[in-house]
Design a protein around this nucleic acid. Structure first.
Lengths: 203, 203
DNA sequence: CCTACTATATACAATATTGTCAATAGTGAG
DNA sequence: CTCACTATTGACAATATTGTATATAGTAGG
């Protein structure tokens, strides 16, 4: 049989976006090493040389995907952090961001052994430390000077906890009975309260 | 040229161990999908059919490696937790265990899409929750009954934090100046103090 | 309508990768 | 020593995978 494939001519940006979407799905399965041009092509509904035409090589595709994912995601995180008013919200947003895919993408980057481009993660991290520390200083008791290293520890803990929870949180929780979603909510609330208590005590 | 390879006959257990060691290195690079029989064979100093002889297939090798890694590591974790006397030590041991490779292996398992065999992680998790809760009850103020869900939250937080720190902790820390190792030490101490404070307050 | 441009597809090439097969060489038991 | 057993290997097969070459079909601009 082998019907002749009907051609759909797209503009380069559209084609790239289409291919990257398909590649993203492929990556979720087993990281960058599991990505196959044929699989991606089939999922995107194009032939595999089309991918090579747009990205030059398999490596080019992986790089482009890492870049796009990280840019979109960190932009999303920063946006959500800015919107957040209370500390409680900030923590919730952080957990959401990592859960939404930031954790997954970070793992991909680590596995592709590329340097995180301008290390978006890290830039964001320092911004948050500085912002949070300003707030701590404002609310400090007279005569007490909060240590910025402690503030950094709070942000560090929140970040690694959100990251870890996104990757294995569900498994750990679903072991202790049912209601995974509810347990997750409860945990985030508990964690938020814990930090509130800490800030209160270390004022 | 092509010298004939000299044969070294090993006992099956030795050969398997040798091959698994090599496979472990290969996995570190890019997860299960990146494992190549030829690479493993070269690293182990055997021919690739030898691997197939012992493990049946590539998949068999991956399964065997996942099993061995997880068994050895969780055994190590449990051992270290039992040795630990203070809460501080327990936290340090948890961070060490994940850093030593448990985090890496867990990621592999997630990527091979296998169920964790009897979910060693999870069994250990519940053991620790029960053990810690018993201690909390012993030290509770008269008339106060600690909520086991809070205890579970503490263990959950410690686990996901240790997991997250093993994977991205170094990168986050090295962004804010030098002395990564010292910063790590400081953070673990801070975290331990935080939980002490919590237990004190929620007695 | 015509033409230049290029996104796309088919066919093909080169290599990588897993797996099979048959021969062989250590090793332990008698 | 001899023999059965099997761990090991080189050669080969079958398929997968990336990349190339070439033809073609949409599309925009004249």
């Amino acid at each position: 049989m082998a019907q002749k494939q009907k051609r759909i001519r797209r503009r380069p940006e559209e084609a790239k976006a289409l291919i990257l979407d398909a590649a993203e799905t492929s990556m979720k399965a087993g990281g960058p090493a599991a990505l196959r041009l044929q699989d991606v092509a089939r999922a995107a509904g194009v032939s595999h040389p089309t991918i090579l035409h747009h990205f030059g090589s398999r490596e080019g595709l992986v790089r482009a995907l890492n870049l796009r994912s990280l840019e979109a995601l960190t932009a999303g995180v920063i946006e959500r952090m800015r919107e957040a008013k209370s500390g409680d919200e900030g923590i919730r947003r952080t957990f959401e961001a990592y859960r939404d895919g930031l954790a997954q993408r970070t793992i991909w980057l680590l596995q592709s052994q590329e340097q995180m481009p301008a290390s978006a993660n890290v830039t964001m991290f320092e911004d948050i430390v500085q912002g949070l520390h300003a707030i701590r200083q404002r609310y400090a008791l007279p005569g007490h000077v909060p240590d910025i290293e402690d503030t950094r520890s709070v942000v560090h803990l929140t970040t690694i906890a959100a990251f870890g929870d996104a990757l294995i949180g569900t498994r750990l929780r679903s072991a202790s009975g049912t209601g995974e979603e509810a347990r997750r909510e409860r945990f985030i609330k508990w964690f938020s309260d814990l930090l509130d208590m800490y800030f209160d005590a270390a004022r």
